[in-house]
Amino acid sequence: MLNHLSKAQIDTITLWYLVQHSLSSFYKLEKYFAGVEHAVNTQNFALWHTLGLHKSHLQRLAEFQSEIGQQKFQQLLHSIQKNSDFILLADDADYPAQLLPYTDKPPILFGQGHAKALLQPQIAIVGSRKPSAHGRQVAYDFAYYLSEKGFYIISGLAQGIDEAAHQGALKHTGTIAVMGTGLEQTYPAQHQQLRQQIVAQSGAIITEFLPDTPPLAHHFPRRNRIVSALSLGIVVAEAALKSGSLITAKLAADQGKVIFAIPGHIYSEHHHGCHQLIREGAILVDHPEQIIEDLALPTQWQNQCYLEHSQKLQTVSHPVELPPHLTALYNQLDWVGQTLDALASKQTVDVAHLTSQLMELELLGVCMQQAGLYLRCRSPQ
């Protein structure tokens, strides 16, 4: 539960509420008014009518300015505070760096659990909501193995493959669930206990949707783009030809992610979708170690570094604590790697100072340099 909402958070929530989760309208208004705070300034509301916005947004704006509308909005803010453990805005230091390159990144994320889980190296596992017993077991086994190697498993909290993947990951590091509804509800409802386990075991539940957002069909592709964008690669464990997982795989391919597909019996309709993905260029895998091997080299460096540090941590009783002056830079790092110039373009310090800070992070064991790229190799505990 949040005790306080900052002005920046309230402004972003206001605009997100008025445009009814429309990414195009949100970023259009932010750009036009040179900032969210100016877009929701009451003195600028008259200009909204000149920007060609959808009539539903203008209707919501008119309602928002009424007494009843304000009461409704205050109830929304109360629900957000009650159900959220953290809120991340796109310009926050803790906002996942993996999402930043995408023009359709969510401007706000509502979460329960541990926000730092989003900064961990993640592999997505998705698949059918009605898998075979074999497919469910394979998803569980792959998640179990990959989480044992230090990767967080990310999926969509759905029935079937998603559920099995979350359960397998809970045996080791943790898991992240991205929802297609508001945080105050669990969909499907029978996964309430699973959701509680995820939060209790260093994981996170996140959504871009405001409270009282129902589980509508078009919300799940939006959810899936976040699942994919946060991950280093996406594994389709089992899918029929008409499975929604194929849509997720297409989104992942558009984002430049590595797609893995687990094959099955050629006569099994449960696997026809995976076989189609393989024909279209997905990487066939029959063991989770192949996923680690086939991901980009920086991911292999990350995994090796993680294992080395895990061995050291067995003899160290205290966690690594990041000094406050290094937090923003560490949060900017990702698990793939960035050049010094790319890091410098987002920092206010000079290159010499930035190099010094990177060296401090390397000495703390949370950053490494490979082939001119700086990347995370573990997280503060």
Score class of each variant (00 low, 15 high):
A177G: 15
E208N: 00
L170V: 12
R225M: 08
I198S: 01
A177Y: 00
S202D: 15
L210H: 05
A229C: 00
S231I: 03
L230C: 00
G174W: 08
K171C: 12
G180K: 11
G168I: 10
S231Q: 06
P211V: 03
R222D: 05
T173N: 13
R222M: 09
Y187A: 03
G233C: 07
G180Q: 00
I234F: 04
A177H: 05
N224Y: 00
T181M: 06
K171T: 13
Q201P: 11
P188D: 09
G182C: 04
A177F: 01
I198G: 02
G233Y: 11
E208W: 12
A237K: 10
L183I: 06
Q197M: 10
A177R: 00
P221Q: 09
G174Y: 05
G180S: 10
V227F: 07
A189N: 13
G203N: 05
N224S: 13
F220S: 06
I226K: 13
I205R: 00
G203I: 09
P215F: 08
Q197V: 04
H219T: 09
R195G: 10
I206K: 10
F209H: 12
T181F: 11
S231E: 01
S228F: 07
Q190W: 11
L210K: 00
Q190E: 12
P221T: 12
R222Q: 15
K171A: 14
T213D: 07
I205W: 02
R225K: 14
E184I: 03
T181C: 14
T173R: 14
